[in-house]
């Protein structure tokens, strides 16, 4: 991240932290004091989160002041989002999409080994087909990816369940 983008990111994150701190403080204040249980008022559940909320709000405000001094308030949305179109960001977004798809869409709807095989195979294929540097020997790449996915899926399922005796999703 460049310095100017970092200042803008700090400005936005500072607002989020101030809001989080204030919301925590309010929620902590609204927590029951449990007087009906005749407890010592200093042991009420809201005390510590309230203190933490206040500290986070103060630290967020300090960052807000600092980023405003550095010009972070002159936030141009287009400028702030400029880096999102880069190849790196696209790869990160694709990774996020595929991993969440596996965890939320595949796991639990089919046997673990099948979900895992499909995920690993599709993940490798998508990243290798879209990379011009890997355009040669396509058939070998597809075959070896299927092999890697199959071995990994069965090995992970077998080792976790039968060697280490832990549950798999």
């Amino acid at each position: 991240m460049t310095d100017s983008r970092m200042v803008r990111a700090d400005f936005v994150s500072a607002i989020v932290f101030v809001a989080l701190g204030v919301a925590t403080l309010v929620e902590s204040w609204r927590m029951p004091r449990l007087e009906e249980m005749n407890i010592n008022p200093w042991s009420a559940p809201g005390i510590v989160p309230g203190v933490l909320g206040a500290i986070i709000a103060v630290l967020g405000a300090l960052m807000l002041v600092r980023s405003c001094r550095q010009g972070g308030w002159r936030l141009a949305p287009g400028e702030a989002l400029r880096g999102l179109g880069s190849a790196g960001s696209r790869r990160a977004a694709l990774t996020l999409f595929l991993t969440i798809g596996y965890a939320g869409g595949l796991i639990g709807r089919m046997p673990f080994w099948l979900a895992t095989f499909l995920f690993i195979f599709v993940f490798i294929q998508i990243f290798e087909w879209t990379d011009p540097a890997l355009a040669s020997r396509r058939l070998w790449r597809v075959t070896s990816a299927a092999l890697v996915a199959a071995i990994a899926a069965f090995a992970i399922a077998y080792v976790f369940e039968n060697v280490f005796l832990v549950n798999i999703p």
Binding site: Y102, G104, I107, I120, E128, A152, I156, V166, N167, I168
Partner: peptide
């Protein structure tokens, strides 16, 4: 691109294994 999906599978199983809760996979994510 061949290693990271396998690592993610390990992360998923690792998050799930202790309490066998699907919710913990979402906590991990």
């Amino acid at each position: 691109q061949r290693l990271m999906p396998i690592i993610f599978v390990l992360c998923t199983v690792g998050a799930f294994a202790i309490a066998s809760r699907h919710f913990d996979i979402w906590v991990m994510i």
